[in-house]
Amino acid sequence: MTENLLVTGASGHLGRAVVNHLLDAQKIPPASVIATTRNPENLADLAARGVSVRAADFDDQASLEKAFTGADRVLIISTGELDLKSDRRLRQHKAAVAAAKAAGVSHLLYTSMPNPEPTSPVLFAGDHYGTEQAIKASGIPYTIFRNGWYQENLFLALPQAIASGKWYTSAADGRIAHVARDDMAAAIAASLASGSKESQIYTLTGPEAYTTTEIAAMVSDVTGKPLEVIQVPDEALTEGVKAAGLPEDFARIIVSFDANTRSGRIAMVTDAVETLSGRKPRTLKQFLEANKTALLG
């Protein structure tokens, strides 16, 4: 008998990709896939394919328990509530863990981040650390995916940097192995569909780690545009990001990524994406080449 597999946040980029990989690559029957979202009308296309679409609100534990009923394996995709002034995101995640336990879920999966310990420079790391602790305390067997930084996150900085010819950063010589979101989704879907009952933690990264200077050289090679890397202190970078029109809290979060890279806490390279999905992850050069037009604006 096929297990029922549930994906939260299924209207988001990662969640939708996971569901599609369950259906297409993993050949899971649509009737065994449950996709949850706050607004079910956003998933009409998945419902048309036979997927069970359910409403679930991370601020309403009762709605989560109802949505999780009948699900065997539940993937909690971390929410986008990046509020530095409250613990709302952690409360949402803890509500989902409690709902999974109440619903009798047999295996819990969660998208975390590399090295989420309280000493992390990343300003929202505590949300992930607290959620991991709640999952372990629940007694439910689990799989935790410590997701590296998306290649797509480079769109936050690169188009403006390429246009000006200057890339301001505080990452120094820290390395990072950006990973394609779709590769991550393929790996997560494969694990969700695997039926594995053991508790596991996987760190998902791209195939090679680069410094900002090395990435800039690759960008120049692909686009034909010169790109100078300018190292600045965290405080100056924060002011620069704010001057570009971003709210202070979001600016601080972005700069904390660079501080994290500089500290060496995200320099790891693993083969978990290929091991789980059975396919080679997209390289950073391939990402840049595929998105050359978008990067050049």
Score class of each variant (00 low, 15 high):
Ala187Thr: 00
Ala187Pro: 02
Ile188Leu: 03
Ile188Trp: 03
Ala189Tyr: 07
Ala189Met: 06
Ala189Lys: 05
Ala190Asp: 02
Leu192Val: 07
Ala193Arg: 07
Ala193His: 03
Gly195Leu: 13
Gly195His: 12
Ser196Arg: 13
Lys197Ile: 09
Glu198Met: 06
Glu198Phe: 08
Gln200Tyr: 07
Gln200Leu: 14
Gln200Met: 14
Tyr202Asn: 01
Tyr202His: 14
Thr203His: 12
Thr203Pro: 12
Thr203Phe: 11
Thr203Leu: 11
Thr203Val: 15
Leu204Met: 01
Leu204Pro: 05
Thr205Ile: 10
Gly206Thr: 02
Pro207Met: 02
Pro207Asp: 02
Pro207Tyr: 04
Glu208Thr: 10
Glu208Ala: 14
Glu208Cys: 01
Tyr210Leu: 15
Thr211Leu: 04
Thr211Val: 06
Thr212Ala: 14
Thr213Cys: 00
Thr213Met: 01
Thr213Leu: 04
Ile215Gln: 10
Ile215Trp: 06
Ile215Arg: 13
Ile215His: 05
Ala216Gln: 11
Ala216His: 04
Ala216Val: 08
Met218Asn: 02
Met218Asp: 01
Val219Ile: 02
Val219Glu: 03
Ser220His: 00
Ser220Phe: 03
Ser220Gln: 08
Asp221Thr: 14
Val222Thr: 02
Thr223Lys: 13
Thr223Asp: 11
Thr223Tyr: 09
Thr223Trp: 13
Thr223Val: 12
Gly224Asp: 07
Lys225Met: 10
Pro226Ser: 09
Pro226Leu: 05
Leu227Pro: 00
Leu227Asn: 00
Val229Gly: 07
